[in-house]
Computed example of a mutant assay.
Amino acid sequence: MVKHWLRSNRGFILFMLCLGIFRTAIADWNPVPSGSMRPTILEGDVVLVNRVAYDLKLPLTDVSLVRLGEPQRGDIITFSSPADGTRLIKRVVALPGDVVAMDNEVLSVNGQVARYDRLQPAEEMLAPGVSVRALRATESVQGTEHAVQFLEGANGRHSFAAITVPEGHYFVLGDNRDNSADSRYIGFVPREKLIGRAMRVLVSADITDRWQPRFSRWIAPL
């Protein structure tokens, strides 16, 4: 009976096998459940991840068969947390050999202090009916420029002394600086823990409003 089922469904089984290999080795889609990358990525976004941006890996492993590229400052990456293996999505702010520091939320890389422009007040929804005031800005440092967000009255690691990123590791931060478990808490990210580079939002739904589609964010670049 099992042999008959396998024979009757071999096309579907082959398709699922190929899909599994594709998702674990070439490209993947990553639902985002948290707001750690606001305002760039929202809860309910499904992000396309290029798994061969940096390495061609043996499927279902961290074993790199071929190096295909190197992460750059500003890349949004997915990776397995060095703390507990959870899949996370953050932005690379410092590369191997870089010296990175933070002073009262102000980032510096290799002695260059970040500039914050286009400041804009906002409301950050923490839960249905619960919101806090936020400040959004464009952060520019070491040739990269992207949006960041700070939450009013939040407790977090707003400052840390200058540290050098070790060889083969990366320092990552969430764009939502006061609501992100990033390298300030989990440490440097080893290269072998990288999964891929986030390329664009595929689809999006508002998880705070009955999963209503956010069509304006569909097929949107990051």
Rank of each mutant, 00 (worst) to 15 (best):
I186N: 03
R184E: 02
E152Y: 06
L222W: 00
G44H: 03
T144G: 00
A181T: 12
Y54H: 01
A25P: 04
R217D: 10
R115S: 14
M102K: 09
R118T: 12
M37C: 05
S81E: 00
T86P: 02
H158R: 06
Q142P: 05
V92G: 03
D117Q: 11
G111N: 14
L58R: 07
R136T: 13
L88N: 08
L135K: 03
F171H: 10
I219M: 12
T78N: 08
S159V: 07
L202G: 05
V2S: 05
S108N: 00
S81P: 00
A101V: 09
E123L: 15
F79V: 01
N30S: 11
S140A: 14
G174N: 02
Y116L: 13
V93H: 03
R157T: 13
R23W: 12
M1K: 03
V201F: 08
G85M: 12
E43W: 03
V141M: 10
Q112W: 15
G35H: 03
N104C: 04
E139G: 07
V47K: 10
F215A: 14
D28C: 06
G143N: 10
M1H: 06
N110A: 09
L65C: 05
R67T: 12
F22R: 04
D209H: 13
I26Q: 04
R191S: 05
Y116T: 05
I13Y: 04
P96H: 11
P121W: 10
A94H: 09
L151E: 05
S64W: 07
G153Q: 04
R115V: 15
S81G: 00
A137V: 01
A101K: 12
A154W: 04
E70F: 08
L48W: 15
A127Y: 02
A137M: 10
R115G: 07
N30C: 12
V52K: 03
G11Q: 10
M125Y: 08
G97F: 15
V2R: 10
P33A: 11
V52Q: 09
Y116C: 04
N179D: 09
R214P: 10
E70C: 01
A101Q: 15
V113Y: 13
K3L: 12
V46F: 09
F215G: 08
N155Q: 11
I219W: 15
I21Q: 03
E43Q: 11
Q142N: 15
A94E: 08
A181W: 08
P82R: 01
R214W: 13
F171S: 05
D62S: 14
S140Y: 08
V132R: 06
A205P: 00
I207T: 13
A220R: 08
F171M: 10
A205Y: 02
E152T: 03
Q212E: 14
A114L: 05
V32K: 05
E70T: 11
A94S: 11
T208S: 10
S183V: 04
Y54W: 02
V113W: 14
I219E: 02
W218M: 02
R136S: 07
S131M: 04
G44R: 02
D103Q: 13
